[in-house]
Simulated scan of single mutants.
Amino acid sequence: MTVDEPITPEPILQLGLGFMASKTLLSAVELQVFTVLAAGGRDRDSLAGAVGLHPRSSADFLDALVSLGLLNRDDDGVYHNSPSADVFLDRAKPSYVGGILEMADTRLFGFWDHLTDALRTGVQQNEVTHTGAPFFATLSQDPVAWRNFLNGMNGVSTPLAGALAADFDWTGRRHVADLGGALGAVPAAVLRSHPEMTGTVFELPPVRQVFDEYVAAHGLSDRLSFHGGDFFSDPLPAADVYVMGQILHDWNLEQRRFLLRKAYDALPDGGTLIVYDAMIDDDRRRNTYGFMLSLNMLIDTEGGSEYTVADATRWLTEAGFAKTSARPLIGGYTAVYATK
Rank of each mutant, 00 (worst) to 15 (best):
D4G: 13
P6D: 12
I12K: 04
L17V: 04
S22K: 15
V29N: 10
V29Q: 00
F34K: 08
A39Q: 13
R42P: 02
H54C: 12
F61E: 02
L68W: 00
G69T: 04
L70M: 15
L71Q: 13
D75G: 14
V78A: 07
Y79W: 07
A92R: 14
M103G: 14
G110N: 14
F111R: 12
L119T: 03
R120T: 02
A133H: 06
V144H: 12
A166N: 14
R174D: 12
A185V: 03
V190M: 10
L191W: 13
T200F: 02
Q209E: 15
E213T: 13
L224K: 09
F231E: 05
F232P: 06
A238N: 09
V243D: 11
M244R: 07
W251T: 13
L267C: 13
L267I: 08
V275W: 00
Y276I: 00
D281G: 03
N287M: 05
L295Q: 09
L298N: 03
E306P: 06
E306G: 09
A310S: 14
W315P: 01
L316K: 11
F321R: 03
S325L: 03
A326L: 11
L329V: 00
I330F: 07
G332Q: 06
T334K: 01
T334M: 02
V336I: 13
Y337F: 15
